[in-house]
């Protein structure tokens, strides 16, 4: 019985996260802030949305 609770709880949390991520994706960036950049070439965290590597078409190997 606890397994069902665990599965339900995690599904609810996961769905909440996916929903919030989608809402964030759809919310436009405020005016005047479209071309902000952090100095991201030292960080190399490829999953971050700010990284300039996201603009490449092919993933680098």
């Amino acid at each position: 019985m606890p397994y069902v609770y665990a599965f339900l709880f995690i599904s609810v949390m996961g769905a909440l996260y996916a929903l919030l991520y989608y809402c964030n994706y759809k919310t436009p960036v405020p005016k005047g802030c479209e071309d902000l950049k952090t100095e991201c070439d030292g960080c190399k965290v490829l999953s971050c949305g700010n990284n300039p590597a996201q603009n490449k078409i092919e993933g680098d190997i």
Partner: peptide, 8 residues
């Protein structure tokens, strides 16, 4: 990770 990347 941000310590080396964002600290310029």
């Amino acid at each position: 990770c941000p310590f080396l990347g964002v600290s310029r």
